[in-house]
Write a protein that binds this DNA or RNA. Structure first.
Lengths: 163, 163
DNA sequence: AGGTATCCGACCGATCTCCTCGGGATTATA
DNA sequence: TATAATCCCGAGGAGATCGGTCGGATACCT
């Protein structure tokens, strides 16, 4: 199993989309600024999210991305798998041919763990995360910061922003 | 979080030790053959397992490794952390300084997931895994295979064995 | 027409994994 | 006492992947 920044970024970005849902399409530039994620990297992630049917895109000025389903119908596991990170901890992908086409000694353990992780992530919707107090606080802080910072100079900035 | 072959190998090897506990010290060569893990790689893993106090070593002919605690007092989480794989899924190591010294939007989610995984792995002992029917079957097959194969030629073989 | 935004694919440095190799140290056994 | 088995150690390396850059193409609003 591999759970890296890629999956974390994807979930974070989706959550940003959910939080600002009322503002119409959200541009990647906004997300980049608020969440400190490189714009170009966001483009890569959203290509996958779009192909997985999790977001809709609107091109041109005023465009951006928006959720294609309500936030309570998108679950963290959906996002993770959409960007090609899986929750499988076996080496064989669950097939049981881990060692010379036979099952390795610890196969069952990893199957159980994989299920455990998957069930956890499949049981949490964006809506649920969003409604937590701690998360709302962070979101509020991020929005405040943005109103001061307005536009930063050149396009394709790194997104870390706070220099 | 990173859960790779390293952690899986370590748990598999420890389980092999637990299963053959009655036979005295187990040589890495035996484990390599039975579990299909490169001998040199096993050496690296067992250096860490020894330093973590999970195994004892006996040098010289007839030597090898044995568990330093009974199998019901060694838990999968111990083994994983001994080989430097952790169950933390946050980027900040749980500190909450994920984004410009502040908490990122999804911090709480990853903390919860990390706890989930850790609790699961900390709740399973080698003894428990060992006593499963499926695991015993695999172990029996591996031991059968070994009695036929006896010694394979040169030292430092890759361990995949079945060529 | 021009600017804003999404789309797309190539590329790259750094890091890590899994593994090899060549030795050294320790100890049982003949 | 020699030999072989076994643990011990560190250097190194091929390959994969991650996080990110860059240059451009395409769609769309004004």
């Amino acid at each position: 199993m591999r759970l890296t920044t890629k999956g974390r970024y994807a979930v974070t970005a989706m959550l940003d989309l959910a939080i600002h849902y009322d503002n119409g399409p959200i541009s990647l530039a906004d997300i980049s600024e608020r969440q400190g994620i490189s714009l170009s990297y966001l483009e890569q992630l959203f290509t996958k999210l779009r192909r997985a049917g999790l977001v809709k895109s609107t091109r041109g000025p005023g465009g951006g991305y928006s959720l294609s389903r309500p936030a309570d119908q998108v679950v963290v596991a959906d996002v993770i798998t959409a960007v090609d990170e899986n929750t499988d901890t076996t080496r064989c992908g669950g097939l049981g041919n881990c060692q010379n086409d036979e099952q390795c000694l610890t196969h069952e353990l990893w199957v159980d763990l994989s299920n455990q992780i998957h069930d956890f992530l499949a049981g949490i919707s964006l809506q649920q995360i969003m409604s937590r107090r701690g998360v709302r606080e962070v979101a509020a802080r991020q929005d405040d910061g943005k109103e001061i910072a307005v536009t930063v100079g050149s396009p394709r900035t790194t997104g870390t922003g706070t220099a």
